[in-house]
Amino acid sequence: MNGGRCTVHRSPFTDSLLALLGKVSYLGRQGIPTRRSVNYDREFLTGTVGVLILSLLSERAMYGYEILQEAERRSAQQFRMKEGTIYPALHQMERAGLLKAAWRDSDNGRARKYYSLTAKGRRQADSKRKQWESISAAMRAILGEAHG
């Protein structure tokens, strides 16, 4: 860990995801992060918010604001999205049975709604991680060849 308050294991998957999403800022209506310097098609990164949530929650339970802060901190403040978009995503995933939520007090004594993965969510996170690694390796190979 790089000096932050988080002391839990940080998965390479989360790191690679955040690395790809590095230098991103939120653009658009549906929580799709996009690079400031490159105009992506919106479809290009659709779904990454969900993958990011699954990835971070696979390490420990977090509340919405904490997820945002954690993503921002790990990407050296480069990953920024409109904060409100995290809640529809969390609620949708909770209703899909991927997450479960429970109110409990945080370290500072304030009640927070903590989200954690269900067994189904863990399977989904695992599946997404494998897909991500496969796509990432393929893209690296293609881009490497193209630039090599």
């Binding site: 549906q30 409109k82 978009t85 809640y87 609620h91 949708q92």
Partner: peptide
């Protein structure tokens, strides 16, 4: 600043409406 970072209330509410639509 916090409200600005949060985003448009209309858009967030719309996304929440879609997330909660129907009992299923």
């Amino acid at each position: 600043d916090a409200m600005t970072r949060f985003g448009s209330p209309v858009e967030v509410a719309g996304a929440l409406e879609r997330a909660h639509r129907g009992s299923g």
